[in-house]
Write a protein that binds this DNA or RNA. Structure first.
Lengths: 264, 264
DNA sequence: GTTATCGTTTCGTGGAAGGAAACAGGATTT
DNA sequence: AAATCCTGTTTCCTTCCACGAAACGATAAC
């Protein structure tokens, strides 16, 4: 509960500090948005806190119109203003990228059957905002909206390469090590970023989780700014250390398609 | 700032009580979802509070991935998890009604040019979740996601009528008076609700704001449950005390169309 | 009747969140 | 180049508000 585990290493999610009430209310909002009704006791158990606390928070949400109670004294559900918030957030440029990219992502998924991810840059990390699961018997899945480190993921390297080429910036050490293949040396990273920039795609074989590889290409807007990354992700068996030409071309093509769609 | 004014009367929005941190963070989230970037000072002025407070809240949101900061130390924007929340909330049944109804609402708007509203029942009030502005020179608009009283609005009466016919329930007095035409007498309301039920539509001429009328019809799902209301709203000049047959038929038809679309 | 639940309420206490003011860094202005 | 005015950030002290524990009323299951 204190942190999320990727492979063997931990990515801290800031489990302490900040305004405590906010941390709880965000979890409650997520519950309201996800399930269609929630109960006080049920939530208090799931979020590992007191009934009274959950109750007080829910009551506040009801006051503000973010939650509603189903007749009399029963369970709670999402309120009108939560839906309004949702609709407002859907108009942000970032979110419209997802809508535009979705058909292309599906096509790419169907080409190889591997999991396909769409990532955006968020602050110091990369976040997967849309993930379409692969259809293999044993596949690799990805929980959406996790923050991923930039130096150990294919999509993240594209971001770092962009920053390095344009501004000469490199991430500030130390670089967290996730597996024995994680690039933790700045010089090695610099070389890798140059390579990534030249070839126009990136991979990260077993650099964040052993046995897993991803292959990523950049999506650029009308000003040629890097705005998002599309990746395929699978076992190292299907995306080997030297990916197949067909795979590279397909991912680059998908990225180019989405880039073109963005300009319309 | 303490309450919202509709016409001359006030609808309290619960400006006190509850968990204070939640009330602030919800306003901040709305700001993040609405504008594309926000600043600490700017927000603290807009929300009438301290910089430190806004800063601490924003910092917490950043920790949790609900906000991001644009490189170094500048303004804030919506984060990945806020967009995730948004996407999750869009999957709730209530929200899908909006999507399904939208084309029909547009058509109804174009028929008369009056403002068209889609309302849902939320707890003890009615909330307009989608509003398409009329195209008249001088029109009547509606701010979305406001809670409206049930006994003084056309859509609200449909809800009350349903409750009265099926369970014999009437709202608990006192009924707030908004204009001289607001129905505040329980017996009068009972008669009105019977009328509404029999004719299958409702209006509320000058009952919440003088000079304004609305005409509303019920949307029902496959089990014939009342799930939403569609309304046209305009000056009393265009929707008179006794609405035109054409208007009534058009609104009822729109409601029927949406009801049918819901079953598919 | 008993025993689970559930959502709600009460109440005293501690610490988390708040306010005011200072700080640091840019950008403008003078 | 100095001064002023913006930022966003930090500190520190103080308070009052949110917290936890436990009781409460209601409903349902057996």
């Amino acid at each position: 509960m204190a942190s999320r585990v990727i492979g063997g290493a931990e990515l801290e999610t800031g489990t302490t500090g900040g305004v405590m009430a906010i941390r709880l209310v965000l979890e409650i909002l997520e519950a309201l948005a996800t399930r269609d009704t929630v109960g006080v006791t049920e939530l208090s158990k799931a979020l590992d806190t007191t009934k009274a606390r959950v109750f007080r928070h829910l009551r506040t949400l009801v006051d503000q119109g973010y939650a509603v109670q189903n007749e009399g004294s029963e369970r709670y559900a999402a309120g009108p203003r939560l839906l309004a918030l949702s609709r407002a957030a859907s108009l942000t440029p970032h979110d419209s990228i997802v809508r535009i990219a979705r058909p292309t992502l599906s096509r790419l998924r169907d080409t190889f059957g591997h999991t396909v991810n769409l990532s955006l840059a968020y602050g110091d990390s990369v976040s997967i905002v849309e993930s379409i699961q692969g259809n293999a018997l044993i596949g690799v899945v990805m929980s959406s909206n996790e923050a991923m480190p930039r130096h150990a993921t294919a999509a993240g390297k594209l971001l770092l390469a962009e920053d390095f080429i344009r501004h000469g910036r490199l991430p500030t050490p130390p670089l967290n090590r996730y597996t024995e293949n994680t690039i933790v040396d700045l010089d090695a990273l610099r070389a890798e970023l140059l390579r990534v920039h030249q070839q126009g795609w990136a991979d990260a074989p077993e650099e964040i989780v052993l046995g897993i590889n991803a292959l990523s290409a950049p999506i650029r807007d009308h000003r040629n700014e890097l705005v998002a990354m599309v990746s395929i992700m699978s076992s190292i068996q299907f995306i080997p250390h030297q990916p197949a030409r067909k795979q590279i071309e397909a991912v680059k093509q998908a990225a180019a398609d989405i880039s073109r769609a963005l300009r319309l």
